[in-house]
Nucleic acid binder design. Structure first.
Length: 283
DNA sequence: AAGCACACCTGCTAGC
DNA sequence: TGCTAGCAGGTGTGCT
């Protein structure tokens, strides 16, 4: 259930450990993970290639291969990418396994796409056909960190829309990368209600929302993302992040607000998602 | 246009 | 202790 900071942490891990290493062999154990193409397309597309770059757009990982093709990986709710010694025991639900030659100072290893709920995907595609195979990439809004979202750009995104702020932040076509956890943390930091309508913000509130967006997301990247109780999210090496220690509202229903001290954190469904917020200081 | 319900899956846990 | 309903960090579709 990774969001921008978790995906960015995985991206950095791939750049540090996998770049330039030849993919010698690929196994696909579950067709659903490669449903957009086929096991053969993913196996043939990856075998013999090397990753020459890894980019991120919102929650999408985009690997560039030396074949000029690209690999798109989305972890959705329960996906993990794990790097482990070749031949070591595999966790359940290891649906795609890429065998990596030694390199980057590392021995032969397996890069495993593990995904119990199988919502995640691995797609190998020719960039010339991106529009047909991965059309959602073209629909993504700006990535707040990768695209250096300015206050003016955010103001433009808010203007002309009448949406609950929570729904707006979750909409990947508006801003790419924010999910349920960070939407709540950002809105608390900005002292704005998740139900507040996007077109009603004052200039000062837009400034606050902008600062909170960048502040929360970049602090979360610095902390290696958030790993909640279920330990669903871990990085390439299987280590959790630590930003959950800085959460102010998520998972704190009934507790006193850490900012105003007097409100009680409420949990209710907003925009169809479980939402934590302080009704006293978030307006 | 915006909001909602539902679908896709599996696993964990809170509550009885 | 054992069962079950409910819930989960995402996204797409289809309906009002």
């Amino acid at each position: 259930m990774p969001e921008l900071p978790e995906v960015e942490t995985v991206r950095r891990g791939l750049v540090a450990t996998v770049l330039g290493r030849r993919i010698e062999r690929v196994e696909v154990g579950r067709e659903r993970t490669v449903r957009r193409t086929s096991p053969e397309a993913v196996i043939h597309g990856l075998t013999g290639t090397r990753l020459v770059g890894v980019d991120r757009r919102g929650k999408y990982l985009l690997g560039r291969l030396d074949s000029a093709e690209q690999v798109m990986i989305h972890l959705r709710m329960s996906g993990q990418l794990l790097l482990a010694p070749a031949g070591s025991p595999r966790p359940p639900h290891s649906h795609v396994v890429a065998h990596l030659a030694p390199g980057a100072g590392r021995p032969a290893e397996e890069l495993r796409f593990v995904d119990p709920r199988t919502f995640g995907e691995v797609v190998v595609f020719d960039p010339l056909h991106a529009a047909e195979l991965v059309p959602e990439l073209a629909r993504l809004g700006p990535d707040p960190l990768a695209d250096d979202l300015t206050r003016a750009a955010l103001a433009r995104l808010l203007r002309g829309r009448r949406r609950q702020l929570k729904a707006l932040l979750l909409d990947q076509a508006v801003l790419a990368g924010i999910g349920n956890i960070y939407a709540d943390e950002i809105l608390h930091a900005a002292r704005l209600s998740p139900r507040r309508s996007s077109e009603s913000l004052t200039g000062q509130q837009i400034t606050r929302l902008h600062a909170s967006l960048l502040g929360v997301l970049s602090a979360a990247v610095d902390a290696g993302g958030s790993t909640l109780r279920d330990a669903q999210y871990v990085d390439l090496m299987g280590a959790g992040g630590s930003f959950q220690e800085q959460h102010r509202v998520v998972d704190r229903a009934g507790a006193a607000c850490l900012r105003c001290g007097r409100g009680r954190i409420r949990r209710e469904v907003v925009a169809g998602r479980s939402t934590y917020w302080c009704p006293r200081c978030q307006r």
